[in-house]
Design a protein around this nucleic acid. Sequence first.
DNA 1: AATGAATGAGGATTCATTCAT
DNA 2: AATGAATGAATCCTCATTCAT
Lengths: 205, 205, 205, 205
Amino acid sequence: MNDRSPAPELIAPSTRGNESAILNAALDAFGEQGFNGASMRDIARGARTSLSNLYNYFPSKSELLAELLRRANDEQLARTRHAANAEATTAAERLRAAVKAYVGFVVDHQVAALVAISEIRYLAGKNREHVVEARDQTQAIFEEIVADGVSAGEFTTPYPGDAARNITAMCSAISTWYRPEGRLSKTQLAEEQSRYALALLEARP
Amino acid sequence: MNDRSPAPELIAPSTRGNESAILNAALDAFGEQGFNGASMRDIARGARTSLSNLYNYFPSKSELLAELLRRANDEQLARTRHAANAEATTAAERLRAAVKAYVGFVVDHQVAALVAISEIRYLAGKNREHVVEARDQTQAIFEEIVADGVSAGEFTTPYPGDAARNITAMCSAISTWYRPEGRLSKTQLAEEQSRYALALLEARP
Amino acid sequence: MNDRSPAPELIAPSTRGNESAILNAALDAFGEQGFNGASMRDIARGARTSLSNLYNYFPSKSELLAELLRRANDEQLARTRHAANAEATTAAERLRAAVKAYVGFVVDHQVAALVAISEIRYLAGKNREHVVEARDQTQAIFEEIVADGVSAGEFTTPYPGDAARNITAMCSAISTWYRPEGRLSKTQLAEEQSRYALALLEARP
Amino acid sequence: MNDRSPAPELIAPSTRGNESAILNAALDAFGEQGFNGASMRDIARGARTSLSNLYNYFPSKSELLAELLRRANDEQLARTRHAANAEATTAAERLRAAVKAYVGFVVDHQVAALVAISEIRYLAGKNREHVVEARDQTQAIFEEIVADGVSAGEFTTPYPGDAARNITAMCSAISTWYRPEGRLSKTQLAEEQSRYALALLEARP
DNA sequence: AATGAATGAGGATTCATTCAT
DNA sequence: AATGAATGAATCCTCATTCAT
């Protein structure tokens, strides 16, 4: 798989009939029109099934959104965690790896990443809790690396928590502007973004 | 006015009867429920007037949103531009001033800033154009300062455009998490954020 | 007003636009198809207005039913109470008057009486409470008269409560079979029914 | 079997797999929510089988209701007829026996009795005819006994038909209020109710 | 400027029923 | 006999908007 090839599906083909078609249609609909702007009819149309059949798979529109956000946040957490846990000698190296993984997810699943940040507000209750937790855990990974780097004298930034928040904010925002045909390939963007992250932390050269 | 005192109203009391009450109610409603989640009934209730009376002030829900976003983006542009134009000897000083002004707007009008980034997608046509233009002009101010600084050898960042985008992204994101009762006062946050911006640009010390 | 003339409206013409038309249409619809069998569309059609306009008058189908049952039970209580309170020298006379009033309501507002007994089960919460209370108060009037009659030695029935229940049961059931064109006029039926009530109580001749 | 022991099942275990479970679930559902308020899904859930499997047993929801009402009315008719045909020297004795049998059914199968009177309106066509016929035959038994008693000079009520109707009305209404844990056992209630019936007929002592 | 009544389109969801397996 | 998937029609209700006053 090279730098411009399609990413692995976030929503893998399901054993259960139309499930993945519905999830993908919902993702598109929420991405284009927002949670409240997209109708279940839109989603059914996108999934090439009937409106009522959606309810054989998901009990409500909210649950559909919840399932999407669960998958997106879980995958982003998994990728970031995996990168952060990889063998590395310095905090700077771990941070570079984590930023690249995080950005990689945003680029590979741009719509999902966009929906994840912009539609989470429409979740409530248990569904919200799970998704928020995954999101916070991803954030915590960055905080921990920054804190480690500060302890080790690698970074000199005064507020590790705020710095980490800025890093994820600017990486998440990529989902709002990135165009695959644009100047930057996924790898280039990931590289560049990790440099900005290290600069932000005032890493020693 | 000190650091924790209320900011000047984004929506000033209007000579026109209920206008400002309606705009403020719409701002709250869009902020809490999103454009499509908020109903004209909600807004009327918030403004303590009747549903049909809204249409004596604004011809449609979309125009209401447009008016809000116009005011927000225009104000943010004005503040940022004013700061960037102030007498200053270095690009770094101008950047610091611009970031502080930008952050100041986000903190003073947090809901408006949030709505401005999250609901702009629901604008179309002329309305969208005006708002996008104001937003892009604000962005352009940062790009120009960064480019100047690079030319002058003050900043060493390789991609001025991308760097400026990251700066506004992380400053805009403040609207999603800032709490006035929290650790950081408006001034502290603005200070801190401008330091992150300069770090990101790899400003020479 | 003679014995076969139309009764006064249970639902008086309202000052508020379509309100009484809606209530009457709902009464007919619930009477013919039951609460769950009647649709808001049916009711709108019957009231010659649009579906959505119903909701300008009643916030939900349940509230519509509640309003109908409130009016029916309140009116039946008022009539019965008025008759029971009228000057009378004996319990038997009071009972006769109360039965006649009760039966009079059933005949005058047969559909309302039918809906009142058959659809009360679909009420819940506060609405149910109010209606049940009116119904129980009506029942209590009969119980009290019977108890008085027993104390006075006029009636010899052993269980006043059960006897009163039987009396209202058989009078309410009239709503399920009475036909105005049939053998019995309202007055005749009321007379006859009061005789059965006294017989049931084993009134001394 | 004593006075408080459970009655024989109205719906006997069937040789046909889930049939009785389905009928019982339907009875419960119709009893609790009414015919239109209960869904086939509710019934399937109650019978612990799948929605579609219901249609292997009954071709439609209406047929399910019809089968229930057939069984209920047939059983009530059979019990009442059996009691009315038993050796007896007087009309009063026959009436007492018939009332006790009728009341016995209502208490033994309270939900079925309730559904029988409240949901019969949702039957149509052939199904309705059969059920109505059984109900009318049961009614006719009482009318005949009353007429006999009047002929024999045992009862002095002037309108045998109306009196009989009142008797069945008040006995059927038992299904709406009886509680097995209450003051009256089945036998006591049946006794008491037969006394009221005779009193209503103005039976000579 | 202000309102209550009105409406047609559309919202999410549930319905009884059917079909393929 | 049993099931999960599927569907079109219908459910209650809300929507943004208009109109008469």
